[in-house]
Amino acid sequence: MNPELEFARKTALAYNALCRPLCQELNLPQTAFDILMFLGNNPSYKTASDIVEIRHIKANLVSVNVDRLVREGYLMRQEVKGDRRKTELICTEKAQPVIRRGQKLQRTFFDRLLENTDEQTRNAFFAAMKIMEKNIDMILEETK
């Protein structure tokens, strides 16, 4: 298997495994938890279509899980003034402790990923990521 693909696959598997106990405790499917964390971590993204576009979760899964999160009181829907067709998803007070626990879990996961690396290696990794991001931006700009 392609090493880059294998790395991405294993990263997702490890993250989901680390999330599993919290998801079970909260009785939330991984996708619902991912949606809640996406909205909590990225307040500028507020719609179901943002979740589909940015997180690449299928629209039907977003719809089902957003409905569940609304029903269970973690999210509320709010119409955008001036555009009845657009609905924003707002994290409720009930969602806040879940988001905080999820953010702690995410920090733990990232710290574990970087375990056994020295500062020089970490700095080189982040520098390479910045360069790749600029390259990606140039590719996207060229293909508009």
Rank of each mutant, 00 (worst) to 15 (best):
F38K: 06
T117F: 10
K46F: 01
Q24L: 08
N27L: 12
R122C: 04
A32N: 07
E119T: 07
P3K: 11
K134P: 01
E115L: 04
E141R: 14
D111R: 15
C91H: 05
E72T: 09
V64L: 09
L5W: 10
A17K: 13
F126T: 04
K86Y: 02
E4Q: 12
T108P: 02
K144Q: 05
L113E: 09
D34N: 15
A12S: 05
L114R: 11
N27A: 14
R20M: 09
E142T: 03
F38M: 05
L75S: 05
D118I: 01
I99A: 02
E53F: 11
L75D: 01
A14N: 10
R85T: 08
A127F: 11
M132F: 09
L75K: 06
L18W: 03
A124Y: 01
N135W: 07
C19M: 14
R85F: 02
D34M: 01
D118H: 03
Q30H: 14
E141A: 13
H56V: 05
I131W: 12
N60A: 06
R122W: 04
R55S: 09
L22Q: 10
I90H: 02
D34Q: 07
F33W: 07
F126Y: 15
Q103D: 07
R84K: 10
K104H: 11
Q24H: 11
S44D: 05
R101K: 15
R20I: 00
K46N: 02
Y15L: 13
R122S: 08
Q103M: 08
E141K: 15
L13M: 08
Q30N: 06
N135C: 04
M132N: 11
L13I: 04
